[in-house]
Write a protein that binds this DNA or RNA. Structure first.
Lengths: 129, 129
DNA sequence: CTTGACCTTCCCCTATGGGGGAAGGTACAG
DNA sequence: CTGTACCTTCCCCCATAGGGGAAGGTCAAG
C-alpha cells in the first residue's frame, strides 16, 4: 500500500507519515522501482497507535522511545518488560504532573467561581485591579 | 518606572514585557524623551496577573481576551472562570486519555512479566504497540 | 572621558508538529 | 496526447513563548 492509503487508513496526513519516518517512529519503508514508499498493512496499526498517543498528549520523542522498545525485532522479554516498566513510570510521572497542574487550576477556578465580584477582585486572580 | 524595574517587580523578563506589549496584553506605554518605556506602578500588578495566569496554564491569547474584558471596566471574573473551566476540562480529558493509554500499557507489562517468551514474541506487545 | 548599567530596535534561534506549495516524476484513463 | 491523481524531495511558513545577542543611544558616577 502507498503512503496515501496508509495515512488515510490511520487517520493521519501523508505529511505526518513522512515526518514520523524522519523522526524515527517509522522504519524506512520499502521503495517501489519508481521511488514510492510501500507499506505493509500493519503499518496502519503503528500509525494508529502513534495517532492515539499524540491525542493523549504524548510527544513524538516519547512515542519514539516507546516504539523503540519493541523494534529490536528479537525483543527479549526481560528487556521488553524493563523498557515497558520505564515507560509506565514515565507515563505515571507525566500524569502526576498534569494532575498537579489540573489541581492548581481547579483551585484558581474554585476561588473565582465561589467569590462574589468583590472577593474576586480582591483575590488571587483579579488582584491586579 | 522603567521596563527593568517593572519586570523585576513582577518577576518576569524585560523580553517578556515587550512581548506582552506586542501581543496586546499591555497597552503601549508612555515614552520618555529618550524613547524609554515609562510604566505606571500598577503595571506591575498587571504583569503579575499575567505571570500567575501563565503559571495556571492560561495561554497568552486567553489572557489577552481576559484583559480586554477588564479594560473597559468590566469584572473579568466570569471570563477568568470560563477560561479556567475550559482549561480544566481539556486537562481532565487529556489525563483520562493518558490514563487509558497507561492502563493498556500496564496490561501489556503484566502479560510480559507473567508470560512465557512465546507469548511475548508472538506479538502481544507488538499488537499493542 | 570613560566605564557600566540601563534602554532601544532588529533579527535570528530554540523546540514542537507538522501544513503549503513548488518543481518534477509516474501511472492510468479517455 | 493530455488530464488527473498519485507520488518524490525541497524549502519556507504558521503558532507558541519567548531567549540571545548585535548595534546603537543614554545616563550617572568615578
Amino acid at each position: 500500500m502507498l503512503i496515501g492509503s496508509a495515512a488515510a487508513a490511520a487517520g493521519v496526513s501523508t505529511k505526518a507519515v513522512r515526518f514520523y519516518e524522519e523522526q524515527g517512529l517509522l522504519p524506512a519503508p520499502e521503495r517501489a522501482a519508481n521511488g514510492y514508499r510501500i507499506y505493509a498493512p500493519d503499518t496502519v496499526g503503528r500509525l494508529d497507535f502513534i495517532r492515539r498517543g499524540r491525542a493523549a498528549g504524548l510527544s513524538v520523542s516519547q512515542l519514539r522511545d516507546i516504539l523503540a522498545v519493541r523494534d529490536p525485532g528479537n525483543a527479549p522479554c526481560p528487556h521488553v518488560r524493563d523498557a515497558l516498566a520505564d515507560q509506565l513510570a514515565a507515563l505515571d510521572a507525566q500524569i502526576a504532573e498534569l494532575t498537579a497542574l489540573r489541581n492548581g487550576m481547579a483551585e484558581a477556578h474554585a476561588a473565582v467561581a465561589a467569590g462574589d465580584p468583590a472577593t474576586c477582585d480582591a483575590g488571587l486572580i483579579c488582584s491586579y485591579l
